[in-house]
């Protein structure tokens, strides 16, 4: 299945690779992709301040690396891959447990989340976070990218370098788990 390119992406890449047009083109790139990448990063590093740092590093890497972009994938999937790698690098550097690494319980995850001054959730949002944090790393990644970032399985496959069938299986498994837990929680509340 062919990647669905964002309108004008080819032209944007051409401008980004032209030294004379690069800076202006990069501003356009920011306008288009900044918000989407921010939310993708935010779900991994959880706090706004960390997401802000990682977002900045991601765009600096994109700016420096655009000449080496081979165009084997869409520009935005290439940027998502850089963002993911940047998140992992940031978490390892700061010795922070990622949203994907909560095998010993989700207390750290929720603690990090609630300490963030820009977390505005109530009990129900915290419950959802708690449920998501209990999923396997792969399930969390696929679920968040598919459900919240509106990425297609093909795009996720390119970003994570995992087959589409595996991703679909992980996603539907994650959805079933979340639904089941929400239903249980609703019954218990009632």
């Amino acid at each position: 299945m062919a990647m669905k390119p964002i309108k004008g992406e080819t032209e944007l890449i051409r401008r980004l690779k032209n030294p004379k047009l690069k800076n202006k083109a990069f501003k356009d790139l920011l306008d288009v992709h900044q918000e989407r990448l921010y939310w993708y990063i935010r779900k991994i590093v959880l706090t706004h301040d960390n997401a802000n740092d990682v977002l900045q590093n991601t765009f600096i890497r994109v700016y420096k690396g655009i000449q080496d972009f081979k165009e084997n994938s869409a520009l935005h999937t290439w940027m998502f891959r850089i963002a993911y790698n940047e998140c992992i690098r940031f978490l390892e550097k700061n010795k922070i447990k990622s949203a994907f690494n909560q095998n010993d319980g989700n207390s750290d995850y929720l603690k990090n989340l609630t300490q963030d001054s820009y977390f505005d959730g109530e009990e129900i949002q915290l419950k959802l976070h708690a449920i998501i944090s209990r999923l396997s790393e792969k399930q969390q990644r696929v679920f968040q990218m598919k459900y919240f970032d509106d990425l297609s399985f093909h795009e996720i496959s390119e970003i994570l370098d995992v087959s589409e069938n595996t991703l679909k299986s992980s996603y539907y498994s994650a959805v079933k788990t979340i639904e089941k837990e929400i239903v249980c929680d609703t019954i218990q509340t009632n």
């Binding site: 900044q34 706004h48 900045q56 959802l128």
Partner: peptide
């Protein structure tokens, strides 16, 4: 993200961040 995950951002964050990123570029 706000409704389902409770995640929020400061007012005008994206426009400010946009400028900051552009300034930080080499």
């Amino acid at each position: 993200h706000k409704e389902y995950l409770g995640m929020d951002v400061p007012d005008n964050y994206f426009s400010i961040s946009n400028n900051n990123i552009l300034k930080s570029l080499p």
